[in-house]
Design a protein around this nucleic acid. Structure first.
Ligand SMILES: [Mn+2]
Ligand SMILES: [Mn+2]
Ligand SMILES: [Zn+2]
Ligand SMILES: [Zn+2]
Lengths: 149, 149
DNA sequence: CAGGGCTATGAGACGTAGTATCATTAGTGT
DNA sequence: ACACTAATGATACTACGTCTCATAGCCCTG
């Protein structure tokens, strides 16, 4: 058996890059850089944050790529209570978000009951339902702990 | 009895102005102008729209007053699917919104089941729930009709 | 491997939504 | 009438994006 050849240093998670190929987009340097960075994020993040972390990549390209990944359901975008914007990695298909009102940490959740309920909401609602957004404001466990001091 | 002195021309609906007094805010000209205008709005509106309609009132004051009315639950603010912002008169206490994805018309609804459900969501969710936002994207009846042509 | 064509990029202008600063104005209580 | 304070408007500034346009880089075909 041949000696294992070193992979291209720190390759991105193939599942994320394949998203580009699947949709016929080119796998370019800037896009790879952004995707690699996102792969490391466990918290919500802002576009400016990505832009700042990747000085070689133009701001417009950051926004363009985020939009692209948004369309591929790789990331999600949400509006916080104070009108701010947050992106976060999408780990499950359709889901909703909790946002800590103290520290801004984003959590994902999915409740089938709510989904079903919203679908049967047709009686109370004018028109045909084509989508929805739910955001739940929380005080996260660690902020709860911190404020108990 | 003295001749009735002409009231300050076109007084605003007292219910809306009293909101200011109740909270200890001054009832000023600019605020009255904005409130009067809002009283006539049956659709959602933007801050710039108000600003444009009231050239005598500064843009900052428009935003300041909207924020104030937001705090008094006189109006509500929502984010549309495409990231735009809409304000609309609040006719019921706590409620949610439908937004037509074609024409942007805002509707209000309130479903007690959802409220109850969200409150009992605590098991699936990290942290203590302190609020929520729900927006439902719809195609409104008139846009449905229009697209059937 | 040279073109050619199209996609993607970066710089920067521009747009919209909103806040901060600050000098001035105008309600309000006495 | 006066003084105190809240409110205002002009203007600068921030956040979040989009648009334009000249340039660069994939990628296919000959
Ligand atoms: Mn998510
Ligand atoms: Mn409403
Ligand atoms: Zn927190
Ligand atoms: Zn419509």
């Amino acid at each position: 058996m041949a000696t294992r050849v070193a992979l291209k240093a720190s390759a991105a998670r193939p599942d994320l890059t394949s998203v580009l190929e699947d949709k016929g987009y080119r796998v370019t340097g800037p896009r790879l850089n952004i995707i690699r960075l996102l792969g490391k994020k466990n918290e919500g993040f802002s576009a400016e944050e990505i832009n700042y972390a990747l000085p070689g990549v133009g701001r417009a390209t950051v926004f363009r790529t985020l939009k692209l990944l948004l369309g591929a359901n790789v990331i999600c975008k949400l509006t916080t209570r104070d009108g701010g914007v947050k992106y976060s990695l999408a780990r499950v298909e359709h889901h909703h978000h909790t946002v800590c009102v103290k520290c801004g940490t984003v959590g994902d959740f999915r409740d089938v009951t709510i989904e079903r309920l919203l679908r049967t909401l047709g009686d109370e609602i004018q028109g045909q339902i084509v989508g929805h957004r739910i955001e739940v404001d929380v005080v996260c466990p660690s902020c709860q702990k911190a404020s108990r001091n």
